[in-house]
Every structure is written in structure tokens, then in C-alpha cells.
Design a protein around this nucleic acid. Sequence first.
DNA 1: TCGTTCTTATGCGCATCCTTATTGTAGAAG
DNA 2: CTTCTACAATAAGGATGCGCATAAGAACGA
Lengths: 225, 225
Amino acid sequence: MRILIVEDEPHLAEALGQIMSEQRYQVDMVHDGADGLDYALTGQYDAVVLDLMLPKVDGLEVARRLRAAHVSTPILMLTARDEVSDKIAGLDCGADDYMTKPFDAGELLARVRALTRRQGEVIGNTLSAGDLTLRLDARCLVCGDDSVRLGFKEFEVLRLLMAGFRSVVPKEDIIAKVWGLESDAEDNNVEVYISFLRKKLAFLHSRTVIGTVRKLGYFLEVPEP
Amino acid sequence: MRILIVEDEPHLAEALGQIMSEQRYQVDMVHDGADGLDYALTGQYDAVVLDLMLPKVDGLEVARRLRAAHVSTPILMLTARDEVSDKIAGLDCGADDYMTKPFDAGELLARVRALTRRQGEVIGNTLSAGDLTLRLDARCLVCGDDSVRLGFKEFEVLRLLMAGFRSVVPKEDIIAKVWGLESDAEDNNVEVYISFLRKKLAFLHSRTVIGTVRKLGYFLEVPEP
DNA sequence: TCGTTCTTATGCGCATCCTTATTGTAGAAG
DNA sequence: CTTCTACAATAAGGATGCGCATAAGAACGA
């Protein structure tokens, strides 16, 4: 799970980085709005923690431009001010959630989890969707009484699908988030891992299946009988 | 395995009871918070499935009072609301896991299994997990009639694994806790001690084995026959 | 000094990952 | 309806790198 932190105050930035890293998020950190925008525009992040007051380009503007560029990465806005008008402005600009400083580490993590959880539910260190439970700590997929171990890539791909349960995850997104943006991985690569996963789902007798949308991507669903 | 279900809504209560009974759990069922508390305080249960909204005493309060009375039975909280603040409150009050209604039967069972999966137990100055007993004073590992002495590092590594019985302990955690945070110890170091430990487990004819999760860490388990 | 415990080094084996090739299927054109 | 093309699914074969084991050297305490 990749997180971008945009925060100019050094102490706070460091604290944020540490909190997130401890939870095994992959953290990238930048210190002004211009850099923040550049990084976030890549769309490779699962969430952006964005300070409101920033050098060069302020947080509201960053959020606005991101949304204008159709980047839908969830944004958690941070601010020192605790004013309703700020919140409205932030949310109007495309932020998904809002926190005032000082904040509690637990609350921050809870909010980030809430943002990165689209449909599949993350509780503790498990991710559930349909009749599937993915154990994040052991990279192990559970369904009923059966369970299987997943390889690293298998795990990452399935996690994306479960996080966006029932919504289509574009193949290019999968490549970007699992193989990395700079990757020259072929589409066929994804197909291979989808194939692996389908096999394991069948093995588990799961009712959940991976559906295909041609030219687009894949999604999880539980077909009606 | 004894489970206490605290749920006021008759339909749901019945469904829960059935799901659990089918899995050969011994189920006790009560329908308000006051009874729930009384029953749970006996400490005889392996897990409590606890609704948040209850007559007389609500779920949060039940959890809080249980923990206050040093009853550590795992609690799985149920709620209709899907709000982050509820989850935080629930977990803060001592719940171990959280599920929102409606839920999948398989997921419920998976979570209950996860909760009842016993961790290593400390009694006096011994630590037990599976068929292993670690004597903390003598740095000595006992299994059945056999026993071996452990080196200091061996001992520390095994203690970590036993304390988190069945859950994956990341290699970096092992290095941090055994060699120290500032250590530049190599991963290979851990592997060597895992190797030593496996040899001693085999020597003791223990049914407990050390499993591997690639790129992550190790865990103890007792494989099915 | 000796023995135990800890660290470092090295080759091998295997799970995972990636690539290529073949077969299968959906949709468009004739 | 048939044929063609593009894409998707699966299978099979290496390539890679991680983890395992063993051994030998270093530190430590008796």
C-alpha cells in the first residue's frame, strides 16, 4: 500500500512518515505543493496525506488540480485551523477526509484505512470481501475451512481486487501498483496471475469469482445462483 | 470450544447460533447486555460474539467492564453501523475484532477462528505453545519427556515465536528485538538460528514446526496430520 | 586453555516469478 | 453464417533470488 505524504513542517513530516512506515505502508514524502502535485499525478498512490498550508502551491490547489486531472486517489487533508469553512473548502476541492492538528496517530491510521478501504473491509490485519478473507500478515487466503498461501505478486494483485470489491480494476492500475510505475511488464503478466488466482479460488471452493471486462480489467464478484 | 453469543435481535441470534453450532462450537446465547456481562465474567468462554446495540447495557460497556475485570476472553463486536468512530470506540473498549452487519457466515467463522487461535501462554516462568514448554529461568525447552538447553539467541528467537504462536513474526522484528534496534545483523543470522531451532524441535520429536513466509518471516504451527 | 555460543561465509535447492508458446473465445467484417 | 482478427486464458519452460544447511572462524566465559 503506497502513501504520499505532503507536509512542509519537518517535525510533523518525520512523525507522519514513521507512523505510516510502522504499519508497513510504503511511504513517499515531499515537502511542498508543487512536488506533491507532481508525485500524486502519477496516480500510483493508494492515498495522499496533504497539508493545507504548503509552500509554492497550497493544499486546496493541489487537491483541485488532481481532481481536474481525473486522479481519484483518496486525499486526507491536514490543517492547524479548525474551522468549518476550511473543511467545506477542502471537501469541495476534492479532499475525501479532513483532520485538524494535533491529531492522534491511531485516528490518522483509522482514517487512512477508511480511505483506502473502498469496499473490501480491512480490520486488524485481515481484508475481507465476499466469502474471502485475506490474512495480510501471513499472505494467506482463507475461505471457510480451507486456506492457501499466496506468492508475493499473487497477493498484491488479489489485494487490489478485494480492496475494490465489485468495481473494475484496470489492468494498467494493477501493473502500476504491483509491478511499479516504471515497469515494462506486459499485460499478459497480469493475465497469468489472474489465472493463478482463479485456480486458487476454485481450490478453496469460494463462491467469489474474478470477472473480466475486455479491454479494461478485472473485478471480484459473487454471482447469484 | 465454548462461544457466548450476546444478541438481542431474535432472527440474527438464531442464525448466529446455528452457524456456530454447525461447526461444533458449544454455544451459549443471551439477549441483553446485563446477562452477557454475567455470563462472560465467568471467563469460561473461548470467545464472545457481542452486538454493539443491546438492551440494559450496551456492547461497548460490556467490553469495557469485562476488561476492567481482567477477563481477557476475545471479543468479536457486531454492529449495523459502518463508521470509523464506532470501530475505534469498539477496539478501544477492548474488542479484538469488529464486523459490520450484514456479514458472511464464512467470514464470521474465519474471524472467530482467528480469535480463538491461542497465543503462547505464560504461567509462572514458563511459556507454553503447542506441545512445547519453554522454561524461562533455565533457558531450557521441554517437549514431552525430552528437553534441551538453548543458547541465549536461540532462546530469544524461540520466545518471540512462541509468544505469537501461529502468527507470523517478521524477520526484521526478530532482528530488532533479539539483536537490538541499532543492529546491522544480517537476515542470514536469523536463518541460522531458525535452522538451529528446527533441528532441536526435530530432536525433541515435537509436532510443532517453524513455518516460513517468504520475504516476511516465520511462525510456529502444529500441522494437521 | 578449553568448550560453548555467536557470527560469517558459501553452495545448493526450490518456490516464486517471468517469458514464451499454444489454445480458446469474443466481436467485427465480409 | 462464416471467416478473420484481436484479445484472453492456460500451460510449460527457464531464470532468479531467497532461504536452508553446513561448516569454519571469532568471541566469550569458565
